[in-house]
Design a protein around this nucleic acid. Structure first.
Lengths: 230, 230
DNA sequence: TCTGCGAGTTAAAAAGTGTTAAATTACCAC
DNA sequence: GTGGTAATTTAACACTTTTTAACTCGCAGA
């Protein structure tokens, strides 16, 4: 990695808080770009190399949770920290924390934020040599997430992006139920009827790919979702 | 050329702490002038070349913030570190709005102070700037951006401008999705249909160049863009 | 048992991409 | 300017990915 300044994307609609954080982070040696809503932040995200994202959950135009999902579509690795109001229900926060590396409830001290940023950077960039072998073993198959391939023996099948994303979710939830709506929101960003039907089509495709090994199966849990058992 | 000692202005009314710090910093190779209040410190600041200022916030005659403002009138660049017993909030806001570079709350360890001084000097010491990577390693290949060449072993391929620009964008987004429209606007300045097709042609060319190393691949993400995985 | 909705499957439609080659444009030496 | 060459764009056609549609089956509650 380079020794360049750590670049932070900060999405915060409260201008006072936003500028304050930006100043503080600048003083701490970070380069911070501040955006007043998720839409503006995303537009910049696609064209700038950031090291970490700090997102307020409640913002106009595009909220932090939606923004995070879009960011995850482009980069599944980049650390994301959510800023949430204390008043939020814990289950909501728990939901938000999925896909996030950390979250902080308002009000918080800036030292606390700094501490968490450093903690995350320490475990992501310093030991950046360890790219967690993005590989899942599914019965006799080997699923390479990064390259989107499924290998059985010496036969390599190239998966499409959607196939790969769905299979990855199933793998990370192996032997547990992958909630339909969660998967839809994660991959399709919206859990409407058509996307749900589209997902069913992909389940069929994945089952076809995996049918060579009887020890592997994608089960349906009526009204809940799917479960990859092995 | 010998590097001159770093000169520190220390404004601290607590004589014990002041002398202690001065001694410590001297031991660490800094030259420190100690003043018991803001007024004395400022009188000396106007006639001496300092590299960094460490100011206690609460001092008699003239407090640290006032002193900092006066210093900023004369030099808007010089690093300022505040020392304060108060914890956070309003103090920080005021401190940063003046343009403080760092902020330490008492009590603090002297190692901590030293660490922060060094951190600040490191990033302020003139034009410390990471050179924007001239070279990308792409699997077994070496891509020289400036020269527009792609090297594999001893075979050097000369890239055209467009090829090079596109490959550079892919590299700066490695393992992330390079958004189609962003790339088009960046390289072609316009994301119309024909430019999009032109870009596809270049993707084909780049894939041909990179096909000697299986660990490198340019994946398409349907409707979004391309991803250089490695 | 009937009924409604979720799920399985296949196929077609719609949009996006891969690739090659021809056409055009830009560039350079003369 | 002219001619030659390389770079880039446009065209053409084949193919993929994803979504939508259509028809089917099956689960679970009334």
């Amino acid at each position: 990695m380079t020794t360049a300044k750590t670049k932070i994307l900060l999405a915060e609609d409260d201008e006072n808080l936003g500028l304050l954080l930006k100043e503080y982070l600048k003083a701490k040696g970070f380069e911070t770009n501040l955006f007043a809503n998720g839409e503006l932040a995303f537009r910049d995200f696609v064209k700038t190399q950031y090291d970490i994202c700090i997102l307020d959950v409640m913002m106009p135009v595009k909220d932090g949770y939606t923004l995070a999902k879009e960011i995850r579509q482009i980069d599944e690795e980049i650390p994301i920290i959510f800023l949430t109001a204390k008043s939020m229900k814990e289950d909501v926060i728990e939901g938000f924390s999925i896909g996030a590396d950390d979250y902080i409830t308002k009000p918080f001290s800036m030292e606390e934020l700094l501490f968490r940023i450093e903690a995350i950077l320490k475990r992501t960039s310093s030991s950046y040599k360890a790219p967690p072998a993005e590989e899942f073993k599914i019965g006799k198959y080997v699923f390479d997430v990064k390259k989107q391939t499924l290998q059985l023996g010496d036969k390599i099948t190239r998966l499409t992006t959607k196939e790969s994303e769905l299979l990855k979710l199933l793998c990370t939830h192996q032997n547990k139920i992958l909630d339909r709506n969660f998967a839809l929101k994660t991959i399709w960003l919206d859990d409407n009827y058509f996307n749900a039907r589209s997902m069913d089509v992909y389940i069929t495709k994945l089952r076809k790919y995996l049918k060579e090994d009887d020890s592997v199966e994608i089960l349906n849990v009526h009204g809940k979702g799917f479960k990859l058992v092995m």
